[in-house]
Design a protein around this nucleic acid. Sequence first.
DNA 1: ATGAAAGCGCTAACAT
DNA 2: ATGTTAGCGCTTTCAT
Lengths: 339, 339
Amino acid sequence: MGGEKPRLRTPTLKDIARELGISAMAVSKALNGKGGVGAETLQRVKETAERLNYQPNAVAKSLRLSSTKTIGVVVSDSSLSFFAKVVKGIEETASRNGYSIILCNTDQDCSKEKLAIQVLVNKRIDGLILAASMLTRKEDVAYLRSFGIPFVFLIRRSEAEEVDYVINDNIGGACQMVDYLVGSGSRKVHFINLNEEIPSRKDRLSGYRKALEENGISYEPSLVRSVKPTIEDGHSAMVELLDGKEEIQAVFCGCDVIGIGVMEAILERGLRIPQDIRVAAYDDIDFAAYLRVPLTTVRQPKFTIGCKGTELLIEKIRVGGQEAKHLVLQPELVIRMST
Amino acid sequence: MGGEKPRLRTPTLKDIARELGISAMAVSKALNGKGGVGAETLQRVKETAERLNYQPNAVAKSLRLSSTKTIGVVVSDSSLSFFAKVVKGIEETASRNGYSIILCNTDQDCSKEKLAIQVLVNKRIDGLILAASMLTRKEDVAYLRSFGIPFVFLIRRSEAEEVDYVINDNIGGACQMVDYLVGSGSRKVHFINLNEEIPSRKDRLSGYRKALEENGISYEPSLVRSVKPTIEDGHSAMVELLDGKEEIQAVFCGCDVIGIGVMEAILERGLRIPQDIRVAAYDDIDFAAYLRVPLTTVRQPKFTIGCKGTELLIEKIRVGGQEAKHLVLQPELVIRMST
DNA sequence: ATGAAAGCGCTAACAT
DNA sequence: ATGTTAGCGCTTTCAT
């Protein structure tokens, strides 16, 4: 596969066997504790393996057993605080169960994602985790299934019903937050939501509307807009809002990153948070408590989503084709100074 | 290797060959564009591969060619903003060069790190990246070498001279910052440094001392302390300082996370930053610009460290045994409101 | 308790 | 241009 530097050959089972004048098979059994090998042989094998610094070749093992004990993890951007936590949960759970993870970034690029999956499939991963995948449509699921490898969606769910996923309750989370905002005095809540690329936006909007409805407030589409989840876009959206003539009481942001931009824009105008405008967001990323104004937000169980998703996948790898499981974890309201 | 669910067999070269009544070898050549195969055959092979959804088995390829096109990445905690950026740089560079990465976390636990490396070696990674490794002593390097796999240190360098690494200039960065603090009016600079677990602390201390010296200020050990790089520890260290009778003009923190805790402690007392106390730190993590007080800090080129380290490793994998390279990247002073 | 044979899927080397 | 042989390192199966 292109290894240009021929390295010193690593000892194999055969080497140990030859050294001891026994068969490779006996060594294999001894080293794997399968039994069927005498106590004395076992002892000698172990000693020799140690002495030669024998390292079992997992590649050969994988080929033989068609299982690599490796999970593919495809994520949009592992360097974002949010996903970094999810990945940590995945890695920890995988490792605890004897699996390694191969990490790939897609940068929200569908063809990059397909390419990554291709590579992973070629490397014969035992299962695949898709965190905030772009392949959520029904036809994408057919594509994913074509590889015959179990997979689980995280954060974003697939449109196809029969697919496993672990997400947080976006409707519930948004609803709780808006309900809190309204209940604590802001009858008028602007919503700077995530943009079209991010499917969760729909559920968060539903939650927003649900909360309004429950509070007998009519939904006003003009209060809602959507932007990319960046500080800059949050900032400029808020600037626009501030430049308009509409009164602004409270702003609910589709994610914390947008919230940061929004707060900056407000503070730049010399307005106060929360006295003049209240700000709330979604995710509870690291440092949300230490921002310009500590941010009220909906905490997604990021690490737990990674853990649960991995457990689910490993179960699928081991047991195989049961029906699809859907885990919807409950987020938690975190009230800080910004409201 | 324990795959319990027998999956449908995936087509192999032989299947394609049988389908076309030719040899597996011909198919291999055709699919790999090695030439030595007729135009018509080539066409038919490609069609059939497509039709059968053939996925080359990289495991078999790896066994045959003893190269996995996979790099092991061992990092203390990939979920920390800082390391997440480094890992992104690694992943991006690796992927661009046709490598995948297996990611392992060590949580600063030496035995966990050794275990991770063991697994990676068994999986026959082509090279190893150690980001903030615990295995920096000379005897550790012997251990690492015993596997016969090229490796590169990132962030932290090894004590052994003949080992490749990519770091930032901790001495220079700290020196610049302290020089700036002194030059802009704070003759007395407290230093809340990183604790013993983190070797970079030494260089940052050297930089601190160097700057003082250059400014004709005598080094006062009582102004220096060290804490774990957490918000809590930064906070309590600062509380102690504030409770003391010593005058405090400026605090230089060993990293941004400590800086966050320090700022919290100062603000809790009703003191102002920077009017009453100036705060500076090291790293420039995400959101450092959006904290309670935008943080003046030394920007480490995190992403670039990942990229350069990976390029270096890949070069070693390809070319092999040249002499060790040491890359010391220049950090950048980022002046914000906290000073 | 131990071993021999076979084969996982692939390709380098050597025929034809 | 194409095919044959052999083997990467391992384990399952079936002998002994």
